[in-house]
Design a protein around this nucleic acid. Structure first.
Length: 305
DNA sequence: AAGCTTAGAAAAGCTGGAGT
DNA sequence: ACTCCAGCTTTTCTAAGCTT
């Protein structure tokens, strides 16, 4: 497929309805990358990140940073994707999975999403915000599809939260739109936020949880799912690029300690400080933990306390 | 102590969708 | 049709840290 076709495909959300749509597109894009790039630019500060540079048909645009430790090549994607679907089947049957399978879950999700993001980076300059919007929406959808694949009842939508006075009388409802609502046996069990990067929007997840419990008098698990936390940054020299992060560790610690800890924060491309820092590492983990360890626990928590 | 580099935080910037 | 909220990357500003 030519670059223009890939870009048009990625920009059209209708094209991504089921998991197989994501897989098909990923396959096409990876095939293109094999031979179709103008250059691969190595990040100056963390060299396992690369930026893809498109040729003239992509206005010589430079993509978002791609973590080469996570991003599959066309060849490895083919073998891994079949293992991946098998892993999901195993999971549903309650079988244990090993570290290799965990690693694969992280890398497949990363590759599926970053092929879309990188393709959208070939859009002409004036449409970069369209790329951001579409990329974010498609990531939300991908995560929901994967959770549904696991058998979870999840949707995006609006939650009506009752606001009561001190005596407990209903004053009014206020509505919140959430990326991810997971139900179990008809009851809402988890509210989730799904974003490609945390930026300053992580604060809102803490506040959402705080307000929810304040308004309803009940605790409902709130989780956050992120693809990565890196962005391109310009360096002093022309045509030289590095990466920088958007995660605010100070805010995270403060909200965790003084407001309320979240019930799960998951990354595909986790940052070193999230593994090393004592406080961060107890709250932030890679995304395989959501599917393999935490999902059923969250769903089976008794609600209302 | 001045000068440079890096990390951290805030602001900018525009699109798309839901609701009224 | 218009407003508001949500989407998210790049740019810009500020603080901290390191070197000579």
């Amino acid at each position: 497929m030519k670059l223009a076709d890939l870009v048009n495909h990625a920009a059209n959300k209708q094209q991504f309805q089921q998991l197989s749509d994501y897989i098909d597109f990923c396959r096409q894009y990876l095939a293109f990358v094999e031979t179709g790039l103008q250059a691969r630019i190595v990040s100056q500060n963390e060299s396992y990140y690369q930026f893809f540079q498109y040729g003239v048909e992509g206005q010589y645009n430079i993509s978002r940073p791609i973590n080469t430790r996570l991003f599959y090549t066309a060849e490895s994607f083919e073998t891994m994707i079949s293992h991946f679907t098998q892993t999901f089947t195993d999971l549903k049957q309650g079988q244990r999975v090993d570290d290799e399978q965990r690693d694969r879950i992280i890398r497949i999700i990363y590759t599926l999403q970053q092929t879309i993001g990188a393709a959208l980076d070939a859009l002409p300059a004036g449409k970069s915000n369209q790329a951001r919007k579409v990329n974010g929406d498609l990531f939300e959808r991908l995560i929901r599809l994967l959770l549904q694949e696991m058998g979870a009842d999840c949707t995006a939508g609006v939650v009506q939260v009752p606001v009561k006075d001190d005596a407990g009388a209903l004053l009014f409802h206020t509505s919140y739109q959430h990326d991810l609502l997971i139900r179990h046996a008809g009851d809402l069990k988890v509210i989730g936020s799904v974003k490609t990067s945390s930026k300053d929007r992580l604060d809102k997840v803490f506040v959402d949880k705080f307000l929810y419990s304040r308004l309803t008098g009940t605790a409902l698990p709130h989780i956050a799912i992120f693809l990565n936390d890196v962005q391109r940054k310009k360096t002093k020299q022309e045509n030289s690029y590095g990466i920088s992060t958007t995660f605010l560790p100070g805010h995270f610690r403060a909200y965790t300690v003084k407001l309320n800890p979240l019930d799960g924060v998951y990354y595909c491309d986790i940052r070193p400080n999230m593994r090393e820092d004592a406080l961060l590492s107890t709250h932030i983990r890679t995304i395989d933990h959501l599917f393999l360890d935490d999902l059923w626990e969250l769903l089976n928590k008794p609600s209302g306390d």
